[in-house]
Design a binder for these strands. Structure first.
Lengths: 248, 248
DNA sequence: CGTGCTCTTGAGGAAGATCAAATCCCGTGG
DNA sequence: CCACGGGATTTGATCTTCCTCAAGAGCACG
């Protein structure tokens, strides 16, 4: 037990000693339950930037939690149009849409070199039967995804370009902050086109709007490097658009 | 047991004899499990047109399944803007977004006189532990909602007015057909404004687009009465926009 | 038979898309 | 180390779609 403190073993990350414990599966499990969880989860599959974690249409077996790095999920149409449905950072779960049809409903692609934990779903399901708080947590996670999707619908249905981009930046900022990173100084991992796809805008509009924010002194843009200088102005822009800050 | 065949008892609808069995909770339960389910579900609360089933911000206790009638769910912003997030017909579940925060995240409003079954969530949860197939079914239902939301995101992010409305009509048609109603001749239960809110369009655009479809001979519009004359033309419009037929 | 909705239709305007060109950056290979 | 090529980004000019404003029509209900 104590040998876990040895740096040599630090490669073997388990849920019980994972730094994302509180973000990812914060279920208040006891030591024994945590051990059961560790036994089920296959951790640390690595993906290089651009690699697919799964593809739409593939058989669904597992959920995936981001350990490090960054992913996007997107649905693409026959004629090549693609809609980014979300960006996913550490502690976030992907693949929930696959449960309903036993088939993944979207593509998940690494935006940078990344690492994920694999959660074989049927084993998680039976584990949930033994550990009520785990079962409940899974329901909560799926519900949270539904809430997130609804706020994206609000964004796409009601907001205009500036509001969308402001909401996007603030959401990113907040999620980074909750992971201990700087809230007002960060690197975008995705291209302007991917941001646009997510927000229902063209890449030129994203670029122009970022420039406009910069001209107004609200943000500083240096390619992928973004600084929020006056986040309160961005908030004012989104205010009145309900609680659409949970998008992502 | 046999006295259930008496018409006097037909008021007492249970899951086991509900005509929506296959749509709503088609879990392949045995007789005993079905009885447990019946014991938990409080059925047949009635709502008049315009009444709220629940409101955003209210405490979350239960999910609700539509038995008869029609509901909309919507999130509304401080400044009064409202985004309809879905229309719900018989057999469909509402309230899943409340699980994550123990608080309802949207309003649910009857679009006509309606009847719902109430599913106390915590009791469903523990029942799920005893009946694995029920637990699995709940996961599937939530996942299906996520898939639906994603296809709405695709619609709002990528499609133009005509495509959106065509997708909407086809989706309605398909859901009605799967309930045994005419696929190509139906009554809209919602206003143009509500359709517009759902599709991210203004009511005038909805009206204009319906008129355009009618001029082209693809549909017939008489106020709320819609007939799909050439549904294949509508399908052609949506084709290439991926499988966005699961919107609702 | 008004009154008040919802709906339709038209005209003009604005937001964002499209098309196009210049710039910048990064990784590659010499 | 530096030049090169391809992709990403910025910015400008124009165009399309949809929104906004406005007026009128149709229906529902008292």
């Amino acid at each position: 037990m104590n040998d876990l403190s040895s740096p040599l073993h630090s490669l073997k990350v388990t849920c019980s000693n994972c730094s994302l414990r509180e973000l990812c599966l914060p279920v208040g499990l006891n030591r024994d339950e945590m051990a059961q969880l560790d036994a089920v989860i296959r951790q640390s599959r690595r993906f290089k930037r651009g690699e697919y974690l799964f593809r739409s249409g593939e058989g669904f077996r597992s959920l995936y939690a981001v350990r490090t790095g960054y992913f996007k999920t997107c649905v693409s149409s026959q004629d090549g149009r693609e809609q980014v449905t979300g960006f996913h950072m550490s502690g976030e779960l992907m693949g929930l849409d696959g449960i309903s049809s036993n088939t993944h409903g979207c593509d998940a692609i690494a935006l940078e070199d990344s690492e994920v934990c694999e959660l074989p779903f049927s084993r998680m399901e039976s584990l949930g039967r033994d550990i009520p708080s785990l079962q409940h947590h899974f329901f909560r996670l799926m519900s949270r995804e539904i809430v997130r999707d609804q706020s994206v619908m609000l964004l796409l249905g009601n907001m205009k370009a500036e509001e969308r981009l402001a909401a996007f930046l603030l959401n990113l900022s907040q999620r980074l902050a909750s992971r201990g990173f700087a809230a007002n100084d960060f690197i975008l991992r995705m291209s302007r086109e991917e941001i646009g796809s997510f927000l229902g805008l063209k890449l030129e509009t994203v670029s122009r709007t970022l420039s406009k924010f910069q001209q107004q002194g609200w943000i500083r843009v240096d390619h992928k490097h973004i600084q929020l200088v006056r986040p309160e102005e961005l908030k004012a822009l989104v205010a009145g658009c309900s609680q659409a800050n949970s998008a992502g």
